[in-house]
Design a protein around this nucleic acid. Structure first.
Lengths: 246, 246
DNA sequence: CGCACACTTGAGTCGGCTCAACCCTCGTGG
DNA sequence: CCACGAGGGTTGAGCCGACTCAAGTGTGCG
């Protein structure tokens, strides 16, 4: 839990000090985040509560079972959200990208561990203050709820994936889904970045690292994708979609 | 509780007519449903919007992709919530019991099909009217959100289950989880009713019907459970918990 | 250069699936 | 009353896809 001690690395600061020239109003992630629901006035109110923080690669933001003293809005970078079984088996619940909100459920304790996959910047909101703001702004709560509802449909898709699909379908579907998510936040490109490692993908799809690797190389060999450093380039989106069978 | 068998379609009536002696105030499901968040006055307001309806076994309440013209509160019975893949593969997202709310996300269209497993009674709320009420009652929205958040953690548990557990763990975990849910709604007993068929369980756990059957008989043979008509009796809760490896 | 680390590739194994039979229980009609 | 069929559930034999175990291939970095 020393991860929230921000003394080392880049120190935290209230956004509204503005010395980094970064205000919520020109936040790159604003339009596809929770904050899009807010008026300019409310945005400033929110900004007063927020602190911008950064994480180094592999740094954990919070861990499973930690008291949820704060909630977060990802503004840049990616994190992996995982859960551990007592016997050491791991499952990756998902990946958080820019615009995603951590702590949607406003929980007492976190149910997952969040770890940075690369350099990450986020807005941190002290949980109590955020809760109070939400209680005072029904349309912010509504927005939060809509987001949670969206997460729920994603979770359903994921359950379908985990329960009923083959290894190849899982990998194809994962790549397609990630591509769509990047498109939503303005990174629309045939090249899909994979900031996470193969093990993370495997733990997300209920496979082993070897199987993920084999499926990727199979997709590569049949020219559906091209494996490039740090990601893949989608050569045949139609075929990828078809393999995902969604 | 088949007071009106003639309800092939929804032989609905406004609750507040009260001619069935059933008002929201003495609804058995009230305390563990959304409605627990409401004052007596608000409850009456909600009741004015509601229509009690009943479903016969196997009747579907709504289907995947249907326009969500209404949302529902289950007051009695159980439903299976499933999704179909284009190629016919099915996944059961979950089972709704008394107190559960269908349409938490207030969606435009339903993402699952809901079918009655036995006789079911529910409260039906026209979606527009319900949305309006929610918009007007922040603490009802909060309650809805908390419920959605809870669903989200259930979904996470389920993902972990689907991705990382063996057939025996899945079945044991399913029985344990169902038992806990029954306990929450006042059916605390060593005997766990299984209103759903083996195929539904299989589709819920990402297994085949044969494997579910085999695992149940294995648990039966080793005296962890006893298979009885319509359900199972848990003989060794400790062992069941241990197998679920939670 | 050499170590570390992430990833890939191969050979053999096994858990859960497929396919097929069989066993109940229940409802229906003769 | 029994005969019958249908549907749900169980059981067995064999197979296959993903896992395990183990070695090999980059690639970056001190």
């Amino acid at each position: 839990m020393s991860t929230l001690e921000l003394s080392h690395d880049h120190a935290a600061h209230p956004c509204h000090h503005g010395w980094q020239g970064e205000s919520c109003q020109d936040c790159k992630a604003r339009l596809f985040s929770i904050c899009a629901a807010l008026t300019i006035d409310e945005l400033e109110e929110l900004e007063a509560l927020s602190r911008q923080i950064t994480l180094a690669p592999r740094q954990t933001l919070f861990a499973q079972e930690d008291d949820a003293t704060a909630v977060y809005n990802v503004t840049e970078g990616a994190l992996v959200l995982s859960r551990l079984l007592p016997d050491g088996r791991r499952h990756v619940m998902g990946f958080a990208l820019a615009g995603d909100f951590l702590g949607l459920a406003l929980p007492e304790r976190f149910t997952v561990t969040a770890a940075a996959l690369g350099p990450v910047t986020l807005c941190r909101f002290e949980r109590g203050a955020f809760r109070a703001l939400v209680a005072d702004k029904p349309h912010l709560l509504l927005r939060l709820h809509e987001r949670a509802a969206y997460e729920l449909t994603l979770a359903q898709d994921q359950m379908m994936l985990l329960g009923r699909r083959t290894a190849e379908e899982k990998v194809a579907s994962f790549l397609g889904g990630l591509r769509r998510r990047y498109a939503r936040i303005g990174h629309d490109s045939a090249t899909v970045e994979l900031p996470m490692g193969r093990q993370d993908i495997a733990d997300h799809l209920g496979l082993t690292i070897e199987t993920v690797s084999r499926m990727l190389t199979r997709l590569d060999r049949e020219r559906t994708i091209l494996i490039v450093p740090g990601g893949v380039r989608v050569l045949d989106p139609g075929r990828l979609e078809h393999l995902a069978a969604g």
